[in-house]
């Protein structure tokens, strides 16, 4: 327990202390909220979609959570480069405790990031439709955060350096994000797109968050969303634990 707690705490401290990182990583979601929310909003409304900011906000929150979570998980690459990873790898504690502490810590950070974006969206004019559902929204954000931090950990466990990081960002994270329904409704998609969005776990995260923040807007239904997210989360945790326990230094 001590191990998990102290590594969780470490992730939090690193996050709170890196102000430039927090501010930097809020720029992008803010840009999306403003540029798309206000830029595409009028067209979206004319097309009969309703208020685009209401539709977009859960997507932008998910995006922030995805990026922060993947990044937190992949911090292993930094720790390897700067040497700190070795210190934890030889410690007389099960590796899965280390993996879990890091991952829950990273997920907490990603959740915090999601909440900040939520607050920014409120300022921009977003209005959640049910206060009762807000705790559920928080739970979903944490679930998504955990899923992708574990995925980041898994991926980073087999990468050696920063080049690999760039590769994963471009070939995994960006597609996950753009092909998730964060920006567009999942109904009436061409067959191939529909298929891709269906195998993308982030789609279910966005959909679940939308379903809890905006009434009657879920495409898959909360039951399916939560099932897929939970299963994917457990699989990623197991994969991450396995790959992390095999790291050599």
């Amino acid at each position: 327990m001590g191990t998990i707690y102290i590594l969780w705490l470490r992730q939090l401290k690193r996050y709170v202390r890196s102000r430039s990182r927090i501010i930097g990583s809020l720029g992008q979601p803010l840009l999306f909220l403003v540029a798309l929310g206000f830029g595409l909003g009028p067209i979206y409304e004319k097309a009969g979609g309703g208020n685009y900011l209401q539709f977009l906000t859960p997507g932008v929150i998910s995006m922030g959570v995805l990026f922060t979570a993947m990044f937190s998980g992949m911090e292993i690459i930094w720790d390897r480069q700067f040497g700190f990873l070795k210190e934890t790898l030889v410690a007389p504690v099960p590796r899965w405790h280390i993996m879990l502490g890091r991952t829950v810590g990273g997920a907490t950070v990603a959740t915090a990031q999601g909440l900040i974006i939520f607050a920014m969206a409120l300022i921009a004019g977003f209005r959640p439709e049910s206060v009762v559902m807000l705790p559920f929204a928080l739970g979903i954000i944490f679930l998504v955060a955990l899923l992708f931090t574990a995925l980041g950990t898994a991926v980073a466990s087999v990468l050696q350096d920063f080049q690999g990081f760039q590769l994963i960002m471009n070939l995994l994270v960006m597609p996950l994000f753009f092909l998730s329904g964060a920006f567009f409704p999942l109904g009436d998609l061409p067959f191939v797109m529909a298929a891709i969005t269906r195998i993308n776990p982030l789609s279910y995260g966005v959909d679940a968050l939308r379903g809890t923040l905006v009434m009657n807007s879920s495409h898959f239904g909360l039951g399916l969303d939560l099932s897929v997210l939970s299963i994917a989360m457990v699989l990623c945790l197991l994969l991450g634990t396995y790959l992390f326990s095999r790291i050599e230094a």
């Binding site: 040497g83 700190f84 030889v90 410690a91 007389p92």
Partner: peptide, 29 residues
């Protein structure tokens, strides 16, 4: 791992933590 302690040749501290925090983390591990 329960049998040994080690000082590595290469750096292995967490730069973003204080000296005290680095020791504390080790002690807990």
């Amino acid at each position: 791992r329960k049998s040994f302690g080690i000082v590595f040749q290469d750096p292995s501290l967490d730069d973003e933590l204080t000296a005290w925090e680095n020791l504390e983390l080790h002690g807990v591990l």
